[in-house]
């Protein structure tokens, strides 16, 4: 696969390592009333859709950036790739 790095252009997926569901970025509030239950969901439960999926890739052999890649898991079509930092700031 080729991943469209927002700064470096198309790069081969061999340069990246895969983490999984981008929901890993949505770390629960540790002080919330149901923090433990929220963390259990966060740590153990993932969606695994056949279709469009937002996922985290680490550009390990490149600039060491984490990317949020939106990918169709059926066709492997990549719809977008953003720097995770930018996504995290936007969501914050």
């Amino acid at each position: 696969m080729l991943i469209p790095h927002p700064l470096l252009g198309l790069r081969d997926a061999q340069e990246f390592t895969y983490l999984g569901d981008a929901n890993m970025m949505a770390r629960p509030d540790p002080t919330g009333p149901d923090a433990e239950a929220a963390f259990c969901d966060y740590v153990f439960l993932r969606d695994n859709p056949a279709g469009v999926h937002r996922e985290l890739w680490f550009h390990e052999q490149g600039d060491r950036s984490w990317l949020v890649v939106t990918r169709n898991t059926v066709t492997h079509e990549i719809l977008s790739a953003e720097l995770a930092t930018d996504v995290a700031r936007k969501d914050a």
Partner: peptide
Amino acid sequence: YQRMEFARQCLWPD
């Protein structure tokens, strides 16, 4: 190192 970068970039970018 990878996990620390994850924490820096994805969890606490501020």
